[in-house]
Design a protein around this nucleic acid. Structure first.
Lengths: 157, 157
DNA sequence: ATACATCGTTAGTGGCACTAACGCAATGAG
DNA sequence: CTCATTGCGTTAGTGCCACTAACGATGTAT
C-alpha cells in the first residue's frame, strides 16, 4: 500500500498552529488517507467501494430493486446504474424485470457474487487492520463510537 | 446549518450490517458532513477553507513565497494561484515580486487579511462547537488524539 | 381519462485532486 | 563564460465524484 505522506496532518514546525487545531482538516485528511488505502486495495482486485456496498446490501436483503438499493446505501440512482452494470458484467449480479411492477428491475446476487462479497469483505478487514494498527482494541472501539456519535448528531439526532 | 441526514452512517435496520462495521465508510461519511458544515459556514461570508488555510499560514510565518505556502499547506501550486487571486481581490493579501529572486512572488497579508483571518477562525471555532457538541471535553481530546495517531501512521510513521 | 408519483436511465454540471508543460530566472559545474 | 539543471509561478488540462434535471414507461388514485 502506498504511503500517504502528502496527507500528513501535522508536519511539526512546518504546519501553522491554527491548522493543527482544525478538526475538520484532520478529519478531511485522515478520511482521504483511509479512502485511498481502501480504494487501492479494492482496485487491485478490479473492484471499488460501490461494488462492495451493493453486494453487502444484496447479501443481507436478497434480491432488491435499484431504488431500494439506492435507498439503503445512499448511492444515487443515476450512479447505481453503472455499478450494477459492472457487477453484471463480472457475473456477480443479475438484472431482471420485476413481474409485479414493470417499472422496476430486480437485482439478484449470483453465487459468484456471494464469493466476491466474501473476498471484498476480507480485503476490507485487512485494510481495517492496517488503518487501525496504531490503536489498541479499546481505542478502536472508542474511535468508532465517538465518530458514530458525531455522525448521528450532524445527521440531525 | 443544513441537515446532513443523507450522510447518516447508521440507518438502523435499513443499513446492511457489513456496512455498519466499515470504519472507512464511517470516516468518509462523517468527514463529508463536517466538510459541508464548515464549507457552508465559510461560504456564507464569501470564503472557503483554502482562504483560511493560506491566511493562517501568512499569520504565523509572515510574508512567504507561493512555493513555501504550498509546501506548508499541501495546496497544489497550480491551485494556489486562484486562492491568492481571490484573497488579493478581497484586499486580504498582496502579491508582489521578490527583489531577491525574480522567480518568486512574495505574498503579504494585509491588515484586512488579519481581521479576515480572525473572523474565519471564529467561524471555524463555532463550527467546531457545533460538530463536537455531543462529546465532552475529554472525548473531544480523545477523538482528536486517536485520529492524529491514525493519520501519522498512514503517513508513514 | 387524467394527474401525479415511481422507476430506471441518460445527460449533464461543478468542484476538486492532481499532473504536464511552459517561460522566466537562479545556480552550479566545467 | 556557457550550459545543464533546478526552482517558481502560471496555464491548461484530466478524471473522478457528488449531485441534479429531464425523459419515457409504468402504476395508482380520483
Amino acid at each position: 500500500m502506498e504511503n500517504n505522506a502528502e496527507l500528513r496532518f501535522d508536519l511539526g514546525d512546518k504546519t501553522p498552529r491554527p491548522l493543527k487545531r482544525q478538526f475538520s482538516r484532520l478529519m478531511g485528511m485522515t478520511a482521504a488517507q483511509v479512502s485511498k488505502v481502501a480504494q487501492e486495495a479494492l482496485n487491485a482486485v478490479g473492484a471499488n467501494k460501490f461494488h462492495f456496498v451493493v453486494l453487502a446490501t444484496l447479501h443481507q436483503f436478497g434480491p432488491s430493486s435499484q431504488a431500494a438499493i439506492a435507498d439503503r446505501t445512499g448511492i444515487y440512482r443515476s450512479d447505481l446504474v453503472a455499478v450494477i452494470n459492472t457487477l453484471e458484467e463480472g457475473g456477480y449480479a443479475r438484472r431482471g424485470p420485476d413481474p409485479a411492477d414493470k417499472r422496476r428491475n430486480v437485482i439478484t446476487m449470483t453465487e459468484a457474487g456471494t464469493r466476491r462479497f466474501t473476498e471484498l469483505d476480507g480485503i476490507l478487514a485487512e485494510v481495517h487492520e492496517h488503518v487501525m494498527a496504531p490503536l489498541g482494541e479499546d481505542e478502536r472501539e472508542q474511535l468508532f463510537s465517538l465518530l458514530t456519535r458525531v455522525n448521528a448528531h450532524l445527521a440531525g439526532d
